[in-house]
Design a protein around this nucleic acid. Structure first.
Lengths: 221, 221
DNA sequence: TATATGTATTTTGTATTCATATACTTAATG
DNA sequence: CATTAAGTATATGAATACAAAATACATATA
């Protein structure tokens, strides 16, 4: 057993560590939109120098989590209503597309996994285990995205999910209608079992459309 | 008249300058896939310190132009055939979607602009002005993307275009079939004039599909 | 009192320095 | 002759130092 090798594999640059820390803080709503990110403050908090903090902030900017104004500072990006509707508009299209691809490209192993996740979700429903249902929901969709076998597509979709997640935690902490989600999952699953891209796309689009409609209603009220 | 304000507006951090320099070098094929990016070398070339170079490299990593191996170095990202087919698969879907949105959301000013670009393209065709045709082609599609009125969608599509551009310059320097492009533009334009999202989507998808098929043929041969 | 001006403080931008891991070279050994 | 070990050079990671801009604050002036 060689411990050095393991340690080396596990090595992460500090900039990466800070990046994940801040990313998580923003995603969880701990750092709120508009809030200023000051290099020394963060560096002191984490016990590192400004250098890795700056690296982290640049990366966050590229992910639309932060906006930078040269010589002024970095701020947690705002999330306007328009932004979030844009995100959902694209999600609807791309998740429909991913489901269609998945219907064509999914293999039996993946189908079995998907079936198990659905059962898990149902168990969660019976026991009113909210966390478990949310986890299963995420897992269900992730499996479909991966089954599209298009890594770039997967990355884009996850990116959009992160954007939405941020919005959800800051403004919109509801996550209801588990029954409807269950039915929707069932229809998508059926389409995938039938290798029916058209149906898969339609159902997956509808799934996101429901979210979009809900958010839209919530926003305009 | 306030000159200070103007100067301030034009200020760009060195990291940004280096970023654009390297990005351009990669996009133009000057820096080839697999090539190593060494911080001191680049810093010396540009007469800056390592700090802004490091910033630039991190940003490039986020754009999939560079891959970094901790404590080893940064390399211009490879572009596999699978990669480029993934990119085109998404482009087909998203450009079709953008065209559909454009058909619904485009206003008269935008339609007029589009008409002028088409005329310009035709002029270029008559004079065999290749550069002009390429410029018009880009302009034509850009106008449609912008008419979708979804800025995030636009950013994603341009990002995919950049990926493809890189591939094109390194491996596939052909840009032919101007007549077919002209016809395709015509059909898309017609759909937009008719406010026909379905037709716009179909034609825009076909436009990308032609590219995809060409690349696919070229790759497998 | 309100505005302008000068000064101090804070913060970002960039360069430099130091530490450490990796790559390279050369020499020793089987 | 091939292979490995030691030592050297080089590159990156991270901290620090320095420069310049932005901000806050106090004082002066109308």
């Amino acid at each position: 057993m060689n411990f050095n090798k393991l340690e080396i594999r596990n090595y992460k640059p500090l900039g990466e560590v800070v990046f994940e820390y801040l990313r998580n803080a923003i995603l969880s709503g701990e750092l709120k939109p508009g809030e200023r990110l000051m290099e020394v403050t963060i560096a002191d908090q984490l016990g590192v120098s400004r250098t890795p903090v700056r690296e982290a902030i640049r990366k966050l900017e590229k992910e639309n989590f932060v906006i930078m104004i040269p010589r002024k500072g970095a701020y947690v990006a705002d999330l306007t209503k328009k932004d979030i509707l844009e995100v959902l508009e694209i999600r609807k299209e791309l998740e429909g597309f991913a489901a269609a691809l998945a219907a064509e490209r999914m293999n039996d192993t993946e189908r079995e996994k998907l079936g198990r996740v659905i059962e898990d979700f149902n168990d969660g429903m019976i026991n009113m285990d909210k966390k478990r249902m949310i986890d299963c929901d995420n897992e269900f969709h992730s499996l479909i995205f991966y089954a599209s076998k298009n890594q770039r597509l997967i990355n884009i979709i996850f990116d959009l999910h992160d954007q939405f997640q941020r919005f959800r935690l800051v403004y919109f902490n509801e996550f209801n209608n588990f029954h409807e989600i269950q039915m929707s999952h069932g229809r998508i699953f059926e389409a995938l079992l039938l290798n029916d891209p058209k149906m898969a796309r339609k159902e997956a689009e509808e799934h996101v459309e429901n979210i979009r409609a809900l958010v839209n209603r919530w926003i305009t009220e």
